Simulated assay, not measured.
Amino acid sequence: MKKWFNWIDDGIATFALSAIILLTGTNVFSRYVLNKPLPWVEEIAIGLFVWLVYIGISSAMKRDSHVGVDYFVNKLPRPLRMISIIVRAAAIYYVLFYIFIYLGLDFTLQASSKVTPILGLSYQMINIAVPIAGVFTAIYFTQSLIRSLRLEFKEEGGS
């Protein structure tokens, strides 16, 4: 089950990137060789790009691939380092739970009557990527936080 869950965001991001490349390449060929551009391709590519970006956030969190400058934090005495970890976690949880999940859901629900101009797809299908990515990222960040706290306690000599 865990292996399947860990694959979901990578699978979505891989599909989105592959589809963007394929659709854009097809549209370039259609526009410049056949002189018949496919107007709907841009709508699909933009929607897939939104999914790629937001789901990519969770995929990067899973691998601890987000950029971080922890040189100074690692030089702090242990009590201050622990406070730093807690403050960082609180800030990240705020962003994930309030901005990504809560506001992302609100943003998605507000898009109920908004549709793309050519295909008439609901923007809810695009916007739902934000709260979904927030949930995945929160899960992966929690796993990462637990690992880093275990490491801190192990350095102290605890169990």
Rank of each mutant, 00 (worst) to 15 (best):
N35I: 00
N35K: 07
N35M: 02
N35Y: 03
K36E: 14
P37G: 01
P37T: 02
L38F: 11
L38S: 10
L38A: 09
L38T: 09
P39R: 01
P39Q: 01
W40M: 07
V41S: 04
V41R: 01
V41H: 00
V41Q: 01
E42M: 04
E42G: 05
E42N: 09
E43F: 00
E43C: 01
I44L: 13
I44D: 06
I44N: 09
I44F: 05
I44R: 04
A45M: 02
A45S: 09
A45Y: 06
A45T: 10
I46E: 02
I46P: 03
G47W: 06
G47A: 04
G47Q: 04
L48E: 00
L48N: 01
F49N: 03
F49M: 07
F49P: 07
F49D: 00
V50W: 02
W51E: 00
L52I: 01
L52F: 15
V53H: 05
V53C: 11
V53W: 02
V53N: 07
V53Q: 05
Y54W: 14
Y54P: 06
Y54H: 09
I55G: 08
I55M: 10
I55F: 05
I55D: 04
G56Q: 01
G56T: 00
G56K: 04
I57K: 01
I57Q: 05
I57A: 12
S58G: 11
S58E: 00
S59V: 08
A60E: 05
A60N: 07
M61H: 04
M61Q: 13
M61D: 03
K62C: 07
K62W: 00
R63D: 12
R63F: 09
R63W: 15
R63S: 08
D64Q: 12
S65N: 09
S65F: 09
V67G: 06
V67L: 15
V67I: 15
D70W: 14
D70K: 15
Y71H: 11
Y71C: 06
V73E: 15
V73Q: 12
N74R: 09
N74V: 01
N74S: 09
N74A: 13
N74Q: 12
K75Q: 13
L76P: 06
L76R: 02
L76F: 08
L76Y: 06
R78D: 15
R78C: 06
R78K: 08
P79D: 02
P79I: 00
P79M: 01
R81N: 13
R81V: 03
M82H: 14
M82W: 14
M82L: 13
M82I: 15
M82P: 08
M82Q: 14
I83M: 05
I83K: 04
S84T: 11
S84A: 12
S84L: 01
S84W: 08
I85M: 09
I85T: 08
I85F: 10
I86A: 13
I86N: 02
R88W: 06
R88G: 15
R88S: 15
A89S: 15
A89Q: 13
A90V: 13
A90T: 14
A90R: 04
A91G: 14
A91N: 12
I92Q: 08
I92W: 14
Y93A: 07
Y93R: 08
Y94P: 04
Y94S: 03
Y94C: 05
V95Q: 10
L96M: 10
F97E: 03
F97P: 04
F97R: 09
Y98D: 07
Y98M: 06
Y98H: 12
